[in-house]
Design a protein around this nucleic acid. Structure first.
Lengths: 241, 241
DNA sequence: AAGTGGTCTAGACCACGAT
DNA sequence: TCGTGGTCTAGACCACTTA
């Protein structure tokens, strides 16, 4: 059921990413040279380079001309909302138990705001899902998801309680490809007060996500609203294009 | 003085990125196929593919198997703190005038906090720079920068008033390579109240940056403190890996 | 069937760092 | 000088979309 990428370079990438993540290899060590790796794996050097470039892009190694590829300290990089990950995937990294409550699920007609956010027309139908996330014993995150029905024909409460993304990718075979993300801080709404334990905070961090499929069609708009003191975003960035 | 990358694939990347940014090519259009481009530029297809992969990574195009490369809507992506950009580079995109005030600059010995953040020893000396950024007529951002003196021997008030990064890259020839970024919300400090127009906000968005050189040595720790209502972070992310 | 992008190869030359 | 990573080539086969 799960789509496995069996590309050589991807396999090699995963293999070394794992070695670094588990701490089998330590920060400061160097990995074998590209030529050595090409021999070890019986591939061409360009294939090795694709794997190493992935490692570099994702912050596992730093390639240094004339020297080799040095392993970076990857420990601090926990809890990334970075990239494109769903709450289910993120919550694996939590210590405390995380539970999801579905407050609202149903088909609606888009208002002006949604028509703009989803580039939808009056005729489009939209799945609206409101969920809160409890971590430990506090309700901390409020997720408001909107899916175009033409891409997601059916949705149930049960699906929303586990992982919508699992369902979309594995059952509907949708290929989620990229997203535009925006992080801002807004005043809390009635809805926030109702569903979250706000502890007196008057503002809330809002992560807005516009999610696209492989064919470049926008199919989801999401607002993930995080209580100020519990929000954390981690990112790894390389300079210059 | 400025280092120009004259790689074929980089030139091709810049050329098409420019065409898309300026709107000469519109979202939804397709660019020529890889084979066509290889012919046009008189290069191999792999070189074209390196250029197109850069375009895809940076959100300019979406490559679709069997079809071609479609141009994405890149307009909404203004004001990225994403990637690694300095305030000077960001402020180009502002409507209003942006000015920088230097409040403090000097060499200090690291306290426990800084020793940890910069992985420094007691013997290290550190440049401390405190600056506020005024946009329009409000002081909105407080930047606290710490540089290891062994990498940055000299710093002046004048340099800090323009762009420290310009100075580091062009005059000191330092190669800034990558950074780890963390975004959280904290309570305002005395320092924030003193240097910023906080308008009653009790909390502040803090962007913490750990900046590394090409040889993987950490040389800078920065806190960029943004007033809640003026903070905006935009990102483009691809799913998987 | 033809055209597209995705993977992979075996080789070449270059710029850079260590020795 | 030698080994490293960075760029580039000319070709091959594949999976996919479109006609």
């Amino acid at each position: 059921m799960i789509k496995v990428r069996a590309n050589k370079y991807h396999v090699i990438y995963k293999e070394w990413a794992e070695k670094i993540k588990t701490g089998e290899l330590k920060a400061g060590d160097t990995i074998p040279s590209e030529n050595d790796l090409a021999q070890i794996y019986g591939t061409s050097r360009e294939t090795i380079r694709k794997a190493l470039n992935l490692l570099a892009q994702n912050g596992f190694i730093q390639k240094i001309r004339g020297k080799g590829s040095v392993i970076l300290d990857v420990q601090k990089m926990s809890f990334p909302i970075s990239g494109l990950v769903s709450f289910k995937e993120i919550s694996k990294g939590f210590q405390a138990e995380a539970t999801t409550t579905v407050h609202d699920i149903g088909l609606i007609k888009p208002d002006a705001f949604l028509m703009q956010q989803l580039q939808a027309s009056k005729k489009d139908e939209i799945w609206k899902v409101i969920r809160s996330r409890k971590i430990g014993d506090e309700r901390i995150i409020l997720d408001k998801d909107y899916f175009l029905k033409k891409h997601v024909p059916m949705l149930t409460k049960q699906i929303c309680e586990s992982s919508i993304y699992d369902y979309l990718e594995h059952n509907l075979q949708l290929s989620i490809s990229f997203a535009k993300k925006e992080i801002v801080v807004e005043e809390c709404t009635e809805e926030d007060y109702k569903h979250l334990d706000l502890e007196g905070f008057t503002h809330i961090v809002v992560v807005k996500n516009y999610v696209y499929l492989e064919n470049t069609s926008l199919f989801q708009y999401t607002e993930s609203r995080h209580r100020l003191d519990k929000f954390r975003f981690v990112d790894f960035a390389r300079r210059g294009v």
